[in-house]
Computed example of a mutant assay.
Amino acid sequence: VEAHSEHPIAKAIVKKAQGMRLYQVESFQAEPGFGVEARVNGKRLLVGNLRFIKNKGLNTAALEEAVETIQSAGKTVVLVARDKTVVGLIGISDLIKEEASSVIRTFKSIGISPVMITGDNATSASAVAKQAGIDEVFAGVLPHEKADRIRQLQSQGLRVAMVGDGINDAPALMQADIGIAIGTGTDIAIESADIIIIGKQLSRLITAYELSVKTYRKIKQNLLWAFLFNGVGIPIATTGLLHPLMAMTAMVLSTLAIIINSFGLKIGKLMVSAESRLEGVSSLQLHVPGIHCQSCIKQIEQHLLAIKGVKGVSGDPSEKRLIVYFDSSTASEAKVRDAIRDLGYALEEN
């Protein structure tokens, strides 16, 4: 049944069931934020949270203690019912990414307050939030209520950026001042967002923030240049003291000054700067003559992410450049280099 759902919890269940025999599913229906219903071999199956099962009229009194026990361990509970009987409980742990707590600490240090909005129960949500270092949590929030929570924060005069990757996050992504979708998320979340983070590295949120700050600074600098040239040049030209040829030269120079100033925004260096702000994260820049396209970088990335301590990989095929971010306490430069060579690529230091 869960194979027909796009919810992350459903995907986790399906992944665990790989290799098992799956039956034909009929009359599949999903209720966002609650669960799914379908018929399998003529029997009605329900898969969802406790509220969903109760709403369908099933008696769950005998299971509520077991549900609370699983939730107290920081797990999300999924109930499975066949016809009118609950036949199973599934406890799913929401494991945070290794870099999540470092990213949260970095955002806090620059004055951004992280808030978690989730459909999970309060106990599970609080456990995950504590691991990540998030102080404010909205738990048990239904998909259509996430946008309401965003509006609530905005009504307090706050500017809100929403990060999400699921189909249930789409309304909130659209409501937020800035919607940020993780590139590996659902299509509807990506279409609803203003910014798309390529890959799975949360540290790229810091890159996006620093890029926006420095871009805005460049815009202000360029406007200053433009107003300076025109503010001085136009009054002089109206007096007839400035020869037309000199005026044309001044205009060209002002344009060149703006272009040269804009080139000061080095995206590659900005990514290294953002990644290096994470606690314990080191970066290794390599020249790899053998990479010719994004597929080459993707191949190297998948291989390196299997190494414990490697946080992310980025690169530029046109410059034959590769940047690897890793936790220096668990991974080493030598291990990274050896892994890349194992794929048949020659290396040169940048």
Rank of each mutant, 00 (worst) to 15 (best):
V47N: 01
E333G: 09
Q18G: 11
K335V: 12
E65L: 14
V232L: 14
G164I: 03
L256I: 15
I117R: 01
E279H: 15
E26Q: 15
I182C: 04
V272N: 13
N121A: 11
D135F: 14
V78P: 01
D342H: 15
L224M: 15
R82L: 02
I198L: 11
N168Q: 08
K298P: 05
M248F: 12
N222M: 15
S254E: 14
E191W: 09
L270D: 11
G240Q: 11
N121R: 08
A193F: 03
G280C: 10
S254K: 12
L173T: 04
E145Q: 12
L265K: 09
E279W: 13
D177L: 14
G312M: 07
S212F: 14
A161I: 02
G344V: 09
I291L: 11
N49K: 08
K75Q: 12
A10Y: 02
R204Q: 12
A62P: 08
L202A: 04
Q154A: 07
A17V: 13
I259F: 14
D120S: 08
V313K: 00
Y23V: 03
D83P: 12
S318G: 07
M162A: 04
Y216E: 10
P171V: 06
V324H: 00
L63W: 09
S254L: 11
G344R: 05
T106N: 10
V36A: 09
M246L: 14
R82G: 06
S329E: 15
Q299F: 02
N55H: 10
L22N: 09
I90Y: 07
L211C: 09
G111H: 07
L245R: 13
G42S: 10
H4Q: 12
A73L: 13
E279Y: 15
T239D: 05
A30L: 10
R51V: 05
A346G: 10
A346Q: 15
N55M: 10
